[in-house]
Simulated assay, not measured.
Amino acid sequence: MWRKKTAWLILLVLAISIKIFSLFPDAVERYYASGIYPVISRLQRILFGWLPISVGDIFYALIIVWLIRRLIKTIRRIVKKQTNKKYWLQALAQTGFIVLVIYVSFNLLWGLNYNRRGVAYQLGLKVERYSKEDLVQVMQQVVVRLNALDSASRVNREAMQRKRNLFNGATAAYDQLALKEKHFTYSFSSVKPSLYSYLGNYLGYTGYYNPFSGEAQVNTTVPLFVQPFTTCHEIGHQLGYAKENEANFAGYLSASSSRDPLFRYSVYFDLYSYSRYYLYAQDSVAAKQLDAQLPPGVKVDYHALRDFIKKYRNPIEEIIDHLYGQYLKANNQPGGKLTYNEVVAWLVAYYKKFGKEAI
Rank of each mutant, 00 (worst) to 15 (best):
L239A: 08
I319Y: 14
L262Q: 12
W88R: 08
Y114P: 14
R116N: 08
A304I: 11
L11Y: 03
N84Q: 01
W88F: 14
Y174T: 10
Y121C: 02
E317R: 14
L108I: 15
F97Q: 00
K85M: 09
N168L: 09
R77I: 01
G96T: 04
V222P: 07
G297N: 05
M139R: 13
D291V: 05
Q326A: 10
Q161K: 13
Q94V: 00
V344D: 03
Y114D: 14
L290W: 06
S17L: 01
V343H: 09
A27P: 09
T230L: 05
K73P: 11
Y202K: 07
N248A: 03
N332A: 01
F249Y: 14
Y37A: 04
S257Q: 14
A152T: 02
R145E: 15
N84C: 11
L108F: 06
D307L: 14
L279N: 08
Y87E: 06
Q82P: 13
G204H: 04
I72M: 11
G118H: 05
Q90E: 11
S22L: 00
G169V: 07
T206M: 09
Y37G: 08
A178M: 06
I316S: 04
N115C: 02
A178F: 13
G35Q: 00
Q122K: 12
V142T: 05
E29I: 07
K86V: 13
F249P: 01
L239R: 09
L23N: 09
I20K: 01
T230S: 05
L109C: 01
T6V: 15
A173L: 00
A61V: 06
I78G: 06
K299E: 11
F229W: 07
K180S: 06
S190P: 10
T221M: 02
I58N: 08
V104D: 02
Y32I: 00
H237Y: 04
Q140K: 03
L123Q: 00
D283F: 15
I316L: 14
I316N: 09
Q141D: 12
P334R: 09
Y205Q: 09
N332Y: 08
R164M: 13
Y202M: 12
Q333T: 05
K180V: 10
N219P: 05
S34R: 13
A152N: 03
P261M: 00
A170Q: 05
D134W: 09
L112I: 12
R276P: 03
R69H: 01
A349C: 07
I46C: 11
Y186N: 11
I53P: 13
Y174M: 12
R157Y: 07
N219D: 02
F269L: 04
C232M: 05
R70N: 11
Y174R: 03
